[in-house]
Design a protein around this nucleic acid. Structure first.
Lengths: 194, 194
DNA sequence: GTCTATATAAGGATAGAC
DNA sequence: GTCTATCCTTATATAGAC
């Protein structure tokens, strides 16, 4: 792995654990083993490096999610698989945590990949749910009309993101799992009624 | 309002908008109009000031929530009122945002009020839900058993916290509302089935 | 491409005068 | 109680040698 690559990966780790405001060029250099000159040779500065790192993390998240959505199974099963993917709840979401970074949100370029990740995720889950409704997984049309794919998708994504908040507040992973199982329980109840 | 008070209130605002890492003593002093000497006379430093500010914000959040939980109405109605309380979704949650602050989470004293706020909130909402189950709002026992108060409460709190994440990512308040309405929709569907 | 030197500002606080 | 002076460290680069 060359210097540029190590710098990007180090930035990804640090953005994840400390956020943009809390990550200094010096910390990136030390973690990557690259010197000052190397960093400023490959990148214009902290912002450009962060942008590349964020875009990479966003792409990784979307790919991981998509591989669950395209797997076989019912709509609820595929969504449940995604929500239950192996995660370190205490580390939080590498993309979601950036929304609390004032300098990221204030900068259109840095915010763009964050915005795209969540708008894609919400839309994609809504599609999977709509597909399930179509297939009759939520019962006959009269019953299925109670499930709104768009808002339910937003609630599912929000529960995950908020699950990280609860886990970090508690300094324990359980609240994340509990929140996820809580909303899946509500969703499954709908299926059971159909 | 005396200096100490203005320093606390300024710290509350800055912690809310910029977080702990992103808030400097100088910024606090400028916003409050107090000088350096004044700040270090009343408080030992940034950390103590932040602790007082966080505890105050936590207390305010709990009071605001409790006033909804004790209002008249069904369990779902009271919870819905809380979730729909007037909020500036783009500002985020003054307590929840602190979970993304590495220096807050790493410090037991600073994390304590954050942890307490969420554990109280989850427990309190679970109590309201359990009360609803008791009263038969979710139908006869055979039906109501599908609703687990504890995990549903965690999902509700998580959806709110994640709603802030989605709103900030989108730079628009709508995703917050959508997520909240999404999970309330699932909850109401359970009531409708009873 | 990478290293070292240098530079300006900000972070976070202490000391002592008033 | 508040102000000003001072201090050391870190943040974030730029410049130029190798």
């Amino acid at each position: 792995m060359d210097s540029a690559e190590r710098l990007i990966e180090s930035t990804r780790q640090l953005l994840w654990s400390r956020g943009y405001v809390g990550t200094s060029p010096k910390a990136i250099q030390q973690l990557s083993g690259a010197g000052q000159g190397s960093m400023y040779h490959h990148f214009s500065g902290k912002k450009e490096l962060a942008l590349v790192a964020i875009e990479r993390s966003a792409a990784a998240l979307c790919e991981r999610a998509e591989s669950q959505f395209t797997a076989p199974g019912t709509a609820v099963e595929r969504i449940a698989k995604f929500l239950r993917l192996e995660r370190d709840a205490l580390k939080g979401c590498p993309i979601g945590r950036l929304t609390q970074d004032p300098d990221v949100i204030a900068d259109a370029e840095l915010r763009a990949p964050v915005e795209q990740t969540f708008s894609w995720l919400r839309r994609r889950i809504a599609e999977v749910l709509a597909e399930g409704v179509q297939r009759g997984e939520f019962g006959p049309p009269a019953n299925a009309r109670r499930l709104d794919p768009a808002s339910t998708a937003s609630a599912l994504v929000a529960t995950m993101q908020g699950g990280y908040v609860l886990a970090r507040a508690a300094n324990a992973p359980e609240p994340f799992t509990e929140a996820v199982e809580g909303i899946l329980g509500l969703l499954v109840a709908l299926v059971a009624d159909s």
